[in-house]
Design a binder for these strands. Structure first.
Lengths: 342, 342
DNA sequence: TATTTTCGTGTAATCGATTACATACATGTA
DNA sequence: TACATGTATGTAATCGATTACACGAAAATA
């Protein structure tokens, strides 16, 4: 049961004051070399550990950073967090995780909790941009706590973000499908109130237009990011008067569902139907019929977000820097859309 | 730029002392009802937020809990963390994430850092049981910080753990392969200095013996949890005098690699060769040739670990409770080993 | 020798909240 | 009236570290 050792204990033992101990341990130049050595040696021998809470209270910095994500058990978010942790760990920051489960209420709650906990910054992926209640965000900004959005972002003055070029991701994928000979391409879209999904859609649309293909409203279906949603979407699409011959899905899970449903109906992929997803989830490359998908370089996204945070954290309170980092999406072409290789 | 509001600000405004404010906000019964209401109303109007750091310093509890995992971007660990977070969030705890990347050095470092940060408990999955340097662990125990192992555990007196019955997992899977008619079953094992892998192996061996099959040393290969490791293992196994007709892999990734290699050699699965993995990674069920695997109920494991922590955190310092929770593994039989359905 | 610097350390305030103890006033009881 | 009890609040210490300021002694300068 080692008691908690404080600088006062060290001071008492050496018949000096805590102030001297503190200075010695912090390499304050005004301390006699012999004293410094003595203190450091004694501290080590007593197994002294600095109490970070006391330090945090005094300095106003907790050395913690909060990360808010919809959920952690998705490869994308877990990888981003990994990137954040790896970048921040050498700087002495600890990462605190919060999940929203896509609930704006939980999101607000998490924001308040993190501020209460005096985190030095918040890196997050937004749940819902349409929330009217921006109080929690305003609260963060008023407290001058650096806030950085990644992937799903919100337009707030003075807030930085790290995203990928979703428009380009949508464009590249659609262009690829067209190159493979697809003539009528459907799109499974996430909630378009979120910019990422809006942009993937716009990229898709632009690619169609640029290639002289007509854009059809009925080819665009909203889906949740679940396997079953993809199956249902295929069911609907195949009942259309002129069914499509390809799907660009903004979700890998929906793409997988689509593929399963198409195969169940004996439609040959990629010969008669091509499918591409988004996110480059691990399973897309493991499948025998591997799935074409857009990589968002989540690890890099996490590291970049962390770096943006580090840039902002030490700036004077009055200056607000807004930095928008846009990473390039990378299309991984695989069997589900490669006619050339078949 | 709202200044930070403290109880002193409230006290000053109301011409009372901070002590009264504190008591009013903490529902201390000795406060006049009218005063309490006034304080609460004023606090709200001034947008007062309690400073958790000050509270933490005073009380010695940070309301943070540390979680140490090899890495976060694996479905298993991410799911465990999700479980921990969901169970602990309602109790006001924040989850701090640390990764070891399978390095004992990082593990030690993380332990010290978390203790420095005054976490109220540590939930972790061990990297390497053979580390001689147990100083970090002893340090945690001496500080009376509840320590809970999940999945990969270490035998330390007074330390609780939440694991699955890996022996049973190995046994069930092997028995299943035998039931499907496999006669010579190989085993790809993780590092057996870790108990989980040792136990899966022992379960495998026992099932062989119980069914009158001979156990062969050369059928047991050590692998890392990578796809390529599975491929290499198949390469070795097929060069044996009597190659096996099934593989029980302690890693889903190695199982996947094995399957890819077998198919590359035109060996029909499950007709001529059965494969089963461990962990029930998402991709195992997504594959067209879905992979039989043992589910470790990671979400439940995380929640259970959190519950064990909650039980221990409020106990008096002198009593050490050691609780060993063993969850039941669940074998998910899929195409890679289902001859009956073929 | 007298005076100024420099050096090393001590004193005490501070960060923001909690709480044991003291105190002042009101009310109840003999 | 004298004393006990209860109620509501104030005083001040505490958690552990940092740091502006003060101060005494030694060294440097005049």
């Amino acid at each position: 049961m080692s008691e908690k050792i404080t600088i006062y204990d060290i001071a008492e033992k050496l018949n000096i004051t805590a102030a001297t101990v503190s200075r010695a341990l912090n390499n304050n130049p005004k301390i006699k070399e012999s004293t410094r050595e003595l203190v450091i040696k004694t501290a080590a021998s007593m197994n002294y550990k600095q109490n970070k809470l006391a330090l945090a209270l005094k300095s106003g910095r907790s050395n913690n950073i909060g990360v808010i994500v919809p959920r952690i058990d998705s490869n994308f978010f877990a990888s981003v967090i990994r990137g954040i942790e790896e970048e921040l760990h050498p700087h002495g920051y600890q990462v605190i995780i919060c999940q929203t489960h896509e609930s704006p209420k939980r999101e607000n709650e998490n924001l308040y909790t993190l501020i209460d906990a005096q985190v030095d910054g918040i890196i997050m992926s937004v749940t819902d941009v349409t929330t009217e209640n921006d109080g929690a965000f305003r609260n963060v900004l008023e407290k001058n706590v650096p806030l950085i959005f990644f992937d799903r972002s919100k337009h707030i003055d003075g807030v930085s973000s790290v995203t990928i070029n979703d428009f380009k991701g949508g464009y590249l994928t659609t262009q690829h499908l067209i190159n493979e000979g697809c003539k009528s391409i459907a799109h499974l879209s996430g909630d378009q109130s979120l910019e990422i999904f809006k942009n993937r859609f716009l990229g898709y649309k632009q690619a169609l237009l640029d290639n002289g293909l007509t854009f059809k409203e009925e080819y665009v279906l909203p889906v949740k990011s679940f396997v079953d949603a993809g199956k249902e979407a295929v069911d609907i699409l195949l009942q259309l008067e002129t069914p499509p011959d390809a799907i660009f899905s903004s979700s890998d899970f929906a793409a997988l569902g689509a593929i399963q449903e198409l195969r169940a109906r004996n439609i040959s992929i990629p010969k008669d139907f091509c499918v591409a997803g988004f996110s480059n989830e691990p399973f897309t490359k493991f499948m025998e019929l591997s799935i074409t998908s857009v990589d968002q370089s989540p690890l890099e996204m996490g590291k970049m977000s962390a770096r943006v945070f580090l840039e902002q954290v030490d700036k004077t309170d009055t200056i607000k820097i807004e930095k928008k980092v846009v990473l390039a999406p990378e299309l991984h072409i695989r069997k589900s859309s490669s006619r050339s290789n078949t």
